[in-house]
Nucleic acid binder design. Structure first.
Lengths: 124, 124, 124, 124
DNA sequence: GTGGTCTAGACCACG
DNA sequence: GTGGTCTAGACCACG
């Protein structure tokens, strides 16, 4: 069976990213209930503790909230969700452009590099 | 004193990237001798074991070579250096575009995002 | 909708405090009848079980009393109400001064801290 | 044996507060190394995982930092430590004054309440 | 049923 | 030796 998780990063962070991504893309809607800790643990084949940690992280990011005795819910504060999405975008762009500049690429080369990459993909 | 290493990544990998970057940008020239393990360990304030690992990694990438009894030297195979540089660039672009698409951004938004980011930086 | 309860503390305790506060401040008068369990449950959007616990707790504190078949009533023993109020005040002061001392603040700093805080609030 | 932890609050939070307090009061100095996870676990009679959680919290607060393979160290950024101390003080004062006002006490009564309390303590 | 906390203990990368 | 992650599984308060 194909391993569902990379070992370059802790499982709990991979799950945070995956769920976070589903939420900011609205694949999971504001107000939706996440499956219970136990169910997610079964679904991903990990220990409930690991899911607990994921939930703590998501709650700290302000994109889910726990309701006592009911479960975890995606925040209905869509403004907050958009802020998170923009933050993630900015982090990716910042890191990417830094990495490219550290390799000695100019701004023009960075942009044309991305453009060529996307164009070539389509061509294939 | 400001910590010189992030704790998001092993120190040895951060050093690999840093030295790799210097070589690829020709800040260190093909044929140049790298400082000794001991000197680098002192310079970066790390354990000599850590530098050993860095050298192993750089040699595996084919951008430095050890000469018995003399030390580590940057390869004079500049074609190889350019290949490495292109590989690193492609890896960065691939990862970046994947991350952005996972957040739900279109190709146009990815490119304009980078352009705006670079433009804003200049403005400031 | 803004969540009406903090998740730092059980809901039933938050309700105890809220109702207790209303009674102690005479917003609800001695002898007044509290709304029925069902009505309170609807009003606060919580489970009737939760209101039951709240009532038990308030009765244990001696500030409400249940009259069989009639409902819960605020005690007419105003002396008892005043005692409760003083108890709560003393508990708050004791905990607060302990916390401040544990941070290393002197008695003078504690008092001036409160004074400055209250003064600044007014200024704004 | 007297239980060392209250059950009103999770053990890990009680430990966070205790260590945090020692640091802001400079009972533990900036730059000091904390005992290892294993040693603290033995010292407090809890599981190493619990200490792990404490360390995560302290690191998130920015008052300790982990150095790979060496352990946890109190930050040398004393400015940050002072900021934390002020934050904690403000939180305590804010909560305290809110609680007192909710009981119906005026600002004068709040201040004189604290003063009388501190004076009486001395008298005893 | 739900999340929250905790223990016991394992394995790993890193330095 | 050090912290970081994870499993297996327990018990609890809360609703």
């Amino acid at each position: 069976m194909a391993e569902q998780f990379s070992n370059a990063q802790p499982i709990y962070l991979q799950l945070v990213q995956r769920i976070c991504r589903q939420i900011v893309r609205r694949e999971v809607q504001p107000g939706d209930k996440l499956p219970s800790v136990r169910d997610l643990a079964v679904q991903f084949g990990v220990n409930p503790n690991t899911i607990q940690r994921v939930n703590m992280e998501l709650e700290r990011m302000g994109i889910v909230e726990s309701r006592r005795g009911q479960g975890m819910f995606v925040t209905e504060d869509t403004k907050q969700l958009n802020i998170i999405r923009d933050q993630l975008r900015d982090e990716h762009i910042t890191r990417f452009t830094n990495e490219m500049r550290e390799l000695g690429y100019t701004e023009e080369e960075i942009i044309s590099g991305v453009q060529n990459f996307l164009r070539n993909e389509k061509g294939q």
